[in-house]
Each structure stands twice: as structure tokens, then as C-alpha cells.
Amino acid sequence: MEAPVANAGEALFRPVRTGNAFEETVERLLQAIRLGVVGAGERLPSERELAERLGVSRVTLREAIRALSDAGYVESRRGRYGGTFVNETLPAPGGDGRKMDPALVEDALCLRYVLETGAAEAAAARSLTPADRQHLTATLAEACSSELDDYRRKDSRLHLAIAEVTASGSLTTAMADVRMRINQLLDQIPLLEPNLEHSNAQHEAIVDAILAGDPGAARQAMAEHIEGTASLLRAFLA
């Protein structure tokens, strides 16, 4: 049963980029499941094999498998014939069962990438006032200390704060609009704690670069952060 999985999965089970290892591992596994590379009721390759092929630690792989288990895609079985198996019935794309248009998802992700990386770069290029700096550090602290059920709101507030300190009202308005679209997508997928911890670390890197006045680093940190979120959205909604 596993031999064709290994052959057909070469393209999917390739090394992920280290910047968003957890998110991309979830994406690769879900792609393999949704595309039928590992069919309903079939077993995923062994943990050791998957970790080696994806180029991630076994801790990261276990976190990704646990996230997919919690979301209803796989189950782990113990014993001689145990392992991680794809569930016979898979959740529909989107938390409410609606089919998501991949083109609309990609449109929102593209717009977000352009606006948010540009906003981070522009914010870092400005001479920030003490009030600007306090605004960034305060919203960062709120996001990092947020409870799970309030995370989306605090996360959105931080991203808007970055646009606000650019002093461009038009950019802030555009950011608010795209964030509404992104949040509608994010509401369709589960909150994954490893992703939230990773996002908070990335948020800190973004704000640190802005406060240090390093536009290139701010843009790169924001790009990496957004790409991680995009990986999860594509995985769950495609």
C-alpha cells in the first residue's frame, strides 16, 4: 500500500523551507491528502521517513500531524500495524462547509502580500514619533499575550498599527479592507497553537526591524510571516 504513496508523493514530500516549517509541513501533508496521494483509510509514510523527506524535525512533524488530527483529517493508531491514517471522511474545505474559490483566496493573499510588506518597509523608513513607537510596542504586547479566543482581533490590531505608523491614511484604509478579507478566510480554518507561537515570534521580528529603522529587514520579516499564513490558508481552503 505504501510503495505507490512514496512514488506519487515525491513532489509533495520534498524539503520545506525552514522559515515556516510547521505551516508548510501542514500544507504538504494536506495537499497529499486532498490530492489523493494518500487516500482515505491509507497510512501516511512513517514519521521517520516523512521527517527526513520534508527536512523537518520530528517534533515539528508531530505538531503538524496533531493539528491535522484535531482538525479531523487523520488519526493515529498504536500497535504493530499502527501509524497515522487518513480518515475515511474528510472535512469540507472551509469551516462552514462552503466551497472556497481558489482564485479568490489567491487574490486576497496577493493583495495582502503587496500591502503588508510595503507597509512594514514604509514604517521602518519613517522617523517614528515616540507615540508611534509606543503604539507599536503596545499592540505587539497585546497580541503576544492574547488568549486564543481573542487572538484574531489582537493580531489584526497589530497589523493595522503597522499601517497606521506609516502616516498614510490611504494605505491604512486599504490594509483594513484586505484584513477583513483575510479574516474571513482565517475564520474558516482552525487556530493552531504552534502557528500562533510562531506568529508571535515573527511579529516581534517585524516590530523590532521597524523600530530599528531597517526597511529591508522589516519587509523580509513581514514576507516570511505572511507566507506562513498563506501556507495554512492554501492547505485548508484549496
Score class of each variant (00 low, 15 high):
H198P: 07
E27Q: 13
G55T: 04
D187N: 08
E47Q: 06
V74M: 09
V165Y: 13
D155V: 15
A124P: 01
V37S: 04
H203Q: 10
G79F: 12
M180D: 06
E10Y: 08
H159N: 14
G72C: 03
R58M: 10
I210T: 00
V207C: 04
L29P: 05
T173G: 13
L196R: 00
D101L: 06
D214F: 07
Q31I: 01
C144Y: 15
F22D: 04
K154N: 12
C110H: 08
T117L: 01
E147K: 13
L44Q: 00
E164I: 04
R43K: 07
V16M: 15
A67Q: 10
E106T: 15
A163P: 03
M222D: 11
L109Y: 02
A238I: 14
E147F: 11
V38W: 02
N20C: 12
Q184V: 13
E52C: 09
R234I: 06
E197N: 09
R28L: 02
G95M: 13
S57R: 13
E164A: 03
N200P: 07
A103V: 15
A212Q: 09
G216H: 12
D155K: 14
G95D: 15
A122N: 02
A176P: 05
N7H: 08
Y73S: 11
M180S: 09
Q202G: 01
E2N: 13
R62L: 03
T60N: 04
A11I: 08
E52H: 11
E116M: 01
G9H: 05
L140G: 04
R219W: 05
L111G: 07
E224R: 10
S231D: 05
D214R: 09
L12P: 01
R234K: 14
H225R: 11
L90V: 13
R181T: 08
L237F: 11
G95T: 12
R112I: 14
A167S: 13
L233H: 00
A120V: 02
L90H: 08
A125Y: 00
D96G: 14
F236N: 12
L233D: 05
R62M: 05
G41D: 02
L186R: 05
